[in-house]
Amino acid sequence: MQKVPGGILRAEPRERFLSKMAGQPRKVLVVAGGGASRLVECSVAIHALKKKYPAAETTLVASGVPREIAECVPDADKVVCTDGRDGAGTGLWGLLSWVWKSRFDVVLCQERDRRSELVALASGAPLRVGWRKGAGRLAFNEGASGPFPNGRDAPITALLDSIGVDTEGVRPRLKQPEGQGRFVGKFRARHGLGEKDKLVALCLSGSLEAARWPEVYFASLAEMLKERGFVPVLFGAKRDARSALEVGKAAGKPLVSCVGSSLEEMVSILSVCEVAVGGDSHLCHLAGAIGVPVVMIFGPTEPSRYPLGDKTIVMTASNSPCKPCWDLGRKRCPKLHHDCMRLVTPDEVLEKLRGVISLKTPVPQSKRPSRDKLPVTY
């Protein structure tokens, strides 16, 4: 650290710091944003940083996800959750105190928020990487400043590029949860499923309300899959219970579901699915990170903002020119037609699935919602 006029401490320039450390910092901290999708993005940062600085101890601070999921990031030497079990306290002040005492050399914060800025300042790290806009100019001495349309968070690759960390070919990846076999065994026994039953995950959640695929489409796709010998399984958070009921009602009978189960259990079951289908959601991002093929439907959100798995197939409505628009309508479509999601039909998704799983039985026309009967609201 060095003093500037006024007695304020300022971090040394990155080049001088890295030359002192012979290019190898001792301790690196990555602060993930809240939620599972942010954790998946941070797995890219941790893997890239580990390749750049193999001798450094890399620590991940995770929030908004269970510890069992945070520990699935394979390249993190240490995982810290703000639940009081790691000496980091249970709140913001406990976290700031722990960061200050830990003396990290490099701190990378994913989110653009006050919490990240305070963590960076409290760390006193010579190299602090984050969103350098507004108060972030004081908190971070390296990072991205934009412009990044349709969002408040810098893409994780832009932050890494700002400090010369190569992200070429680096994909999100997670390990299987430790209790994977136990969860899968109980799930199969509960629903009378055998080892040879082929599961297909239908992920009802959406990063935004406007990013959900219509329930009637999920029901139609589920019927098509069942006719081909697959077992469609509904996935979602507790708040998706109503959507699961609507899908079952549209399908004519209840479907196999793990909606409302713990995130650890759902990730375990996702890992044995043949493929996952859904909108831009944390479940689809998690499925892609653990190596499951995913057909992900993007509407109001922008796929280029996310690091996606090698087996992820992106679908968008080509005849919906108003997308992306998530900065305008988080809960409802600003134009009230939801074309970006409803114009991607079950037939088109099924066609994409042909490249992933073997589909032989022809689709009965009666099960297909035609384009002149597309749902208006959902």
Score class of each variant (00 low, 15 high):
residue 216 V to S: 14
residue 62 A to L: 03
residue 33 G to Q: 04
residue 170 V to P: 11
residue 279 G to D: 08
residue 137 R to H: 14
residue 3 K to H: 06
residue 341 M to Y: 03
residue 171 R to E: 04
residue 345 T to P: 07
residue 267 V to P: 00
residue 354 R to L: 03
residue 41 E to V: 09
residue 181 G to M: 12
residue 375 P to F: 03
residue 194 G to S: 11
residue 319 N to G: 09
residue 100 W to A: 10
residue 150 N to I: 06
residue 140 F to T: 11
residue 193 L to T: 05
residue 353 L to V: 09
residue 164 G to T: 11
residue 232 P to I: 10
residue 276 A to E: 15
residue 294 V to C: 05
residue 351 E to W: 06
residue 9 L to A: 14
residue 16 R to N: 07
residue 87 G to R: 03
residue 38 R to F: 03
residue 336 L to E: 15
residue 194 G to L: 07
residue 92 L to R: 11
residue 262 S to G: 13
residue 183 F to C: 11
residue 282 H to K: 14
residue 46 I to R: 04
residue 78 K to P: 04
residue 104 F to Y: 14
residue 14 R to Y: 08
residue 35 G to V: 07
residue 196 K to A: 14
residue 87 G to N: 03
residue 74 P to C: 02
residue 311 K to A: 11
residue 153 D to C: 11
residue 360 K to Y: 12
residue 189 A to Y: 03
residue 94 G to N: 06
residue 343 L to G: 06
residue 140 F to A: 12
residue 306 Y to P: 01
residue 51 K to M: 14
residue 227 E to P: 00
residue 195 E to L: 15
residue 296 M to S: 08
residue 28 V to E: 01
residue 18 L to F: 10
residue 254 P to T: 14
residue 248 G to L: 10
residue 33 G to D: 07
residue 252 G to F: 04
residue 253 K to N: 02
residue 359 L to S: 13
residue 277 V to Q: 08
residue 7 G to M: 04
residue 312 T to Q: 08
residue 180 Q to N: 06
residue 20 K to C: 13
residue 234 L to A: 08
residue 128 R to E: 10
residue 294 V to Y: 01
residue 107 V to S: 02
residue 372 D to N: 09
residue 253 K to S: 07
residue 296 M to W: 02
residue 343 L to Y: 04
